[in-house]
C-alpha cells in the first residue's frame, strides 16, 4: 500500500514537471490519470520491489556516480580501438559470477555490464551471466568482480534492511 502511494506521488510529480501548465482542470486531469495508472499497475501486480524499487534510495545514487566514471573510461577505451587503423579488437565470451540475492540485483548487474561499452551481457542464468567482451582485458576486468561486489553491496544491505522492517 505504501508503495502504491509512493508510486502515485512519483507519477504525479512527473506529470507536474512535464506538463508545465498549472490550471485546476489540467492538474485534476493529471491526478485522475495517475490514479488510473496506479490502479492498473496494482491489477497487473507490478507494484512491488521490482516494479518500483524505492528501497534502493541513496545507495542507488552513489552507485550511479561510480558507474558513470566507469562508463566514461570504457567509452574512451572503445573509441581508441575504433579509431586505430589496425582495429585492435580481440572478442571473447566469458562467464561471470553474479552474487546478488534477488532477480532485481541480477538485472541491475547485467544492465550495468551492458551499459559499459566494451562488454555486453548475452544471457542471464541462475547465478552466472554470459558476457561478450570486445577485448580480453575488458573481459578480465568484469571477471575480477569489482562491479559485482558493488551491486551486491547496494542491494545486499537493502535485503537486511527490509527484513528489519517486516
Amino acid at each position: 500500500m505504501l508503495r502504491a502511494i509512493s508510486l502515485g506521488l512519483v507519477l504525479f510529480g512527473i506529470w507536474l514537471l512535464i506538463s508545465g501548465i498549472y490550471t485546476p482542470l489540467l492538474i485534476s486531469l493529471g491526478a485522475v490519470s495517475c490514479l488510473a495508472v496506479v490502479g492498473i499497475a496494482h491489477r497487473m501486480d507490478v507494484v512491488d520491489h521490482e516494479g518500483h524499487p524505492i528501497h534502493l534510495g541513496w545507495r542507488a545514487l552513489t552507485y550511479w556516480m561510480w558507474l558513470t566514471v566507469e562508463i566514461v573510461k570504457a567509452n574512451i577505451d572503445v573509441a581508441r580501438r575504433i579509431l586505430d587503423p589496425k582495429l585492435p579488437i580481440d572478442p571473447a565470451v566469458v562467464t561471470v559470477k553474479a552474487s546478488q540475492d534477488s532477480e532485481l540485483g541480477h538485472v541491475i548487474f547485467a544492465n550495468s555490464i551492458t551499459l559499459t561499452p566494451g562488454t555486453v551481457s548475452m544471457r542471464v542464468a541462475e547465478n552466472t551471466i554470459l558476457v561478450h567482451a570486445i577485448a580480453t582485458d575488458m573481459a578480465e576486468d568484469v571477471q575480477s568482480g569489482a562491479m559485482d561486489r558493488r551491486v551486491t553491496a547496494m542491494e545486499g544491505t537493502v535485503q537486511t534492511h527490509l527484513k528489519d522492517a517486516s
Binding site: V78, I82, L87, I89, P117, G118, M122, I134
Partner: peptide
Amino acid sequence: IRFPDVYSRMHAAGMTDTL
C-alpha cells in the same frame, strides 16, 4: 561500420547511446 560482427557492433552502438 568497421566492426566485423553483430556482437562487436553492439559495443559501438552502446557507445553512441551512453556518452
